[in-house]
Amino acid sequence: MSIIFDSFANLVKVTTELEHLPQSARELFGSRLGWAISPFSWEKHEDWGDAGKWLCQWAATGADVSEETAKSSKVVGRALLCTDLYRERKAAVLKTKLAHAEDALLTCVFVAGQKAKDREEYNPEYLKFDANGWPIESKSYIARAGGRLLEYQNGILQGRPWTERSWIFAIPLEKIETPRAFKTQIAEPFWNILLNGPENAFSADSCACRFPMEVAS
């Protein structure tokens, strides 16, 4: 099989898998007692190729996260899964090329805020990485959990629950080979961070990318 034929076949396969992601993501995420997540849908800023819309370079699917009680349901923020398959953006500031720089990434995001208008940091530029593997807006984040988790800084005082903070972590896409891998690498850390904070959110065998940024105390 020629390299060109094989490469295109892989593109078609990946695109087909991505089309099923919103349908399966809710089931894979699961829920926790007192919490729920809505069905996922593609975000309006999805970045598909122009001609034929068959090639995806970066796209995001999202769902609302709600705190559930016997009498009411309160949206606290939005969970996003960003598929980052290729990056050509050169770094604005020269930095070391990170180990995951040439990996396709699945980035898990939580954007705090009950309503869309409250989520000022909800901009795809803050969820993307440059060609060296760094967040394009690195200056807007501080690192936690040994550099695995990046918390968005918006000038609000610390000490708030993690349901009121916005944060991201990324896993090389090739590490998510099975539903079980998704649950252990994405879903379990997501719920642990949201409900208990990042201190013990990542397991010893976590594949989460590390960012050698200033680590918050």
Rank of each mutant, 00 (worst) to 15 (best):
S72M: 14
K97T: 10
A104M: 00
K44F: 13
S73C: 10
S72N: 15
A51G: 12
L80Y: 14
V111L: 02
C108V: 15
D103Q: 07
E43N: 15
E121M: 12
K115V: 05
L81M: 04
A91W: 02
E43Q: 14
A59N: 12
E46K: 15
A51V: 12
S73A: 14
T96I: 02
G52R: 14
K97P: 00
R87F: 01
L98M: 08
V111A: 09
K90Y: 00
V65W: 06
T107Y: 07
E68R: 03
K115F: 10
K71I: 00
K95M: 10
K44Q: 15
R119V: 00
W58Y: 10
L94V: 12
W58I: 11
C82L: 01
A79P: 04
A116N: 12
V65L: 09
R78T: 11
E43W: 15
A60M: 08
W54F: 13
D118C: 02
V65R: 01
K97M: 04
K115E: 09
L98N: 04
E68F: 01
Y122H: 11
Q57T: 10
K44M: 14
K90A: 05
A101T: 09
D50E: 13
A116T: 14
A116G: 11
T69R: 10
C108L: 13
F40W: 13
V65G: 04
K71T: 07
E120F: 09
Y122P: 02
A70Q: 06
E88W: 03
L81D: 05
A116D: 15
S66R: 12
S66H: 04
V75I: 15
K71V: 05
Q57V: 10
V109P: 00
A92M: 03
A112C: 08
F40V: 12
A99K: 12
L106F: 05
Q57W: 11
C56E: 11
V93L: 08
V76G: 02
A79Q: 05
E88N: 06
K71R: 05
Q57R: 11
S41L: 13
P39W: 12
A104P: 02
A104V: 05
R78L: 11
A60N: 09
R78Y: 09
R87H: 01
G77D: 07
A79C: 09
D84K: 01
H100F: 02
E121N: 07
G49L: 07
G52E: 13
W58C: 09
P39M: 06
A59Y: 08
V76Q: 08
E102I: 01
E46A: 13
Y122N: 11
T69C: 05
T107N: 07
V75M: 00
A92D: 04
A51I: 13
A60I: 08
L98A: 06
E121G: 06
E120T: 13
Y86D: 11
K95W: 05
L81P: 03
A112Q: 10
G49M: 06
L55W: 10
T83P: 04
D50V: 15
P39D: 13
R78Q: 13
T96G: 03
C56Q: 14
A104S: 08
A70W: 03
A104L: 04
Y122K: 10
K53M: 13
H45S: 15
S66M: 11
F40C: 14
T61Y: 06
L105V: 03
E121D: 06
A79W: 00
L81T: 03
A104Q: 01
D84L: 00
